[in-house]
Design a protein around this nucleic acid. Sequence first.
DNA 1: GTCTATATGGGGATAGAC
DNA 2: GTCTATCCCCATATAGAC
Lengths: 204, 204
Amino acid sequence: MAVPRTTKRDRYHHGDLRAALIDTAMELIAEQGVQGFSLAEASRRLGVAVSAPYRHFADRDELLLAVAARAGELLVAAVTAERGGDAPQARLAAVARGYVRFAAGHRALFEAMFGTLTPVGEPELDRAMRPVKEAFQGAATALADGDQAAAEALGLAVVAAAHGYAGLLHLGTFGTGEEAVETAVKRAEAATLALIAGRTALTS
Amino acid sequence: MAVPRTTKRDRYHHGDLRAALIDTAMELIAEQGVQGFSLAEASRRLGVAVSAPYRHFADRDELLLAVAARAGELLVAAVTAERGGDAPQARLAAVARGYVRFAAGHRALFEAMFGTLTPVGEPELDRAMRPVKEAFQGAATALADGDQAAAEALGLAVVAAAHGYAGLLHLGTFGTGEEAVETAVKRAEAATLALIAGRTALTS
DNA sequence: GTCTATATGGGGATAGAC
DNA sequence: GTCTATCCCCATATAGAC
């Protein structure tokens, strides 16, 4: 009655359960959100015992942390993929657009990175965010006239704005659907340009 | 051994279980975070059966939604309480400071409002945020020269920035402790001033 | 060292009694 | 409106098979 998991001969060892768990977790989270995800269901999908994951992760949160780190890589990729002209202003605005678009297109993963699960200022999460911040600051450097502190301040301000618009979008402030996404993206871009225009106020 | 709940005679009916549940939930959330909160524990604290809450809330999420709404009221109060001079710029900056300070001082409640729990663009949550946005937009109006759309855009931009700095603070970007809080508050204030200075770019 | 089988305890949720 | 009883799912721990 029971369906055999593989025709040949079930390998006793999965092979790469750790990576498979992260992949499956990301799928489940994308389908049902973070709270809808369970170790048990991930194990079921992979055809392993519910206790198997504990060979690779101390607990559920540790797996979620690994997921958040992977999501961070995807976010970096999304942010650097968005292209927009050569002018420094345009590049920084493009990064902000990419950030909001990622949040819109991968809502559950985005929430997995920043959601409640965060125990207490998890250093792993800040580490995952570092490349993202660097992407923003890299684009901001050209606008800072060699002033390191100014570049850092501008980059962070644009990250914060993009992050905030993403949050408002998820709250429904701009409505729902593709139209809402575009509104949020446009607003984040405009705010980026405004921050650039008024950037002398950032380092008072 | 068991402590009687009332000296006189335990009323079979609690009286105002709904309100008591919201209060207790806020306490538990403040103590242990959102994920650490359970209906069962709240029921235990109130001396009622675990099934009693279901007369007042459809499920756990519905109670959390009520908590988020209450947290929103506290946030509005915190935001309007922060005073800072008469100049429109100073008032708007004060609102932003209040927002970040609230996020810092009531982290768990703040996360309860914006955390993962949000099913899908819950309208209740956006409703809870509306007064907050209005507080920002009210302060922004004086800077918009009677332009309604400009006031709305500026207000939202400042909300977004404040929200973003709050998120970065919780991630540990500015470190931990009171020092980190002050850094985030200062940065949010500076970003507000920068957005004001460059606000013509917001409504292109 | 990696996975299975199994057991414990807790929490969410429902049905029917009071 | 609340309680008791009940079910199911899940996180986690332990012992043992491979």
